[in-house]
Amino acid sequence: MNAFRLLADLTHLLSIIILLVKIRTTKSCAGISLKTQDLYVLVFISRYLDLFTRPLSLYNTPFKLVFLATSITIVYYMRYHKVVKQTYNKDSDTFKHYFLILPCAVLAFFINPKFTFIEVLWSFSIYLEAVAILPQLVLLQSSSNIDNLTGNYVFMLGAYRALYLLNWIYRFFAEDVVRWIPWIAGLVQTALYADFFYYYIKSWRNNERLKLP
């Protein structure tokens, strides 16, 4: 465990809390992509299957349970809550996210640490997480005004994986740990946020509303 890793996980947790606060307090999920949330549920389920097979960890296990519970709760709210589901931008959330699942599954089938059920699904979840934000970024581009909580949510979500990259750099030098699969997927994932980061920081610096081209 190192500071980058701890900060990364807390940032990830914070992003989910921001989203839950937004949905619960404003009773609205306007600007949030349900497709991205669906993908995150898939990411967490396929990644945390080892909850039942590997020894529990005081640190990881609570986080895994919280990530699973919150991501499922968010999808539940957006699909079934009578008030919230009315505010979902169904006609703007148009990304064909099913086209993301198959390539990740095929890639995981061929590129994985070990050809076992758990490891292939773990690799699938790593690849899927890298692209899961795409529907959300596409939805933001079509949103006329992005509310602060949504902007902060996406920013934290991107920042957490960037912090994981620092954690991997640290572990490479300090513990000689090499992990190609999460490294490359994490780089792709963070790169996808690059333009969002640029506009987010620009709007924060000029103290104006966030607007994506």
Binding site: R5, H12, P113, E119, R179, W180
Partner: peptide, 10 residues
């Protein structure tokens, strides 16, 4: 192709 790595990260 990677060796079996412990899943100690989230």
């Amino acid at each position: 192709d990677c060796y079996d790595q412990p899943k100690d990260e989230l």
